[in-house]
């Protein structure tokens, strides 16, 4: 597989949110406003790309030689958690408004299935270092793209006369399903 195929595959065809259904919690939680969605997308891009690379290095040069592969989950979570802590400190100091907007979802990137899932998928597919980098970037951009598109749609839904039982998260879930359906468009392209 060439790099271009990995990139297109990761962003569109195997979109981590809409085709693999990982990381739906921040997808629904931070998509009500465009600014928070963009901020969350940026945070996830940063964390996911770095986590993908660092976990690959950790796995290849530490866990495998010392036969500690069974510690994979804990080691990866540790890496992701420290990265998230770093992002959190940075945002708190430099962009307090975004920090407040993201709220609980920022620390929750730690347990974001998308980040952890992408790291595990990279290892399981036995990709080399460069491909891991490209694949992680593709997944992260795909996550950001889906989140921003969803936020655009949701900003409109807030203005519509949605029936009471369906307001807010319920209509969000229905729309997320339809979003996933629209991504059927990319099926089979690579």
């Amino acid at each position: 597989m060439g790099y271009m195929e990995i990139l297109i595959g990761g962003i569109f065809v195997n979109n981590i949110l809409l085709a693999q259904f990982l990381g739906n919690c921040p997808f629904l939680g931070t998509s009500k406003k465009m600014e928070t969605a963009v901020g969350m997308a940026m945070a996830v891009v940063f964390v996911l790309v770095l986590a993908g690379v660092i976990t690959w290095v950790l796995y290849a040069f530490f866990l495998v030689p010392y036969k500690l592969v069974y510690m994979r989950t804990i080691a990866f979570i540790l890496v992701i958690a420290s990265l998230v802590q770093f992002v959190e400190m940075f945002l708190k100091k430099s962009i307090p408004a975004l920090y407040a907007g993201l709220g609980i979802f920022l620390p929750l990137i730690t347990t974001n299935c998308a980040v952890f899932g992408a790291c595990i998928l990279n290892i399981d597919k036995e990709l080399n270092f460069m491909k891991t980098l490209v694949q992680s970037t593709a997944y992260a951009v795909g996550f950001g793209l889906a989140l921003i598109l969803f936020a655009g749609v949701r900003e409109r839904i807030i203005l519509a006369r949605v029936p009471k039982p369906l307001q807010d998260t319920s209509i969000g879930l229905v729309t997320a399903g339809i979003l996933s359906l629209t991504f059927y468009a990319f099926k089979g392209m690579i």
Partner: peptide, 26 residues
């Protein structure tokens, strides 16, 4: 045309327009 030529569906109009509906607010 992308779906018709390289995608897995025979006709792509339905999903292509739905995808553009999604991009419409942006």
């Amino acid at each position: 045309v992308l779906i018709r030529n390289i995608g897995s569906y025979v006709d792509g109009v339905v999903f292509a327009i739905l995808l553009m509906n999604l991009i419409n607010p942006l």
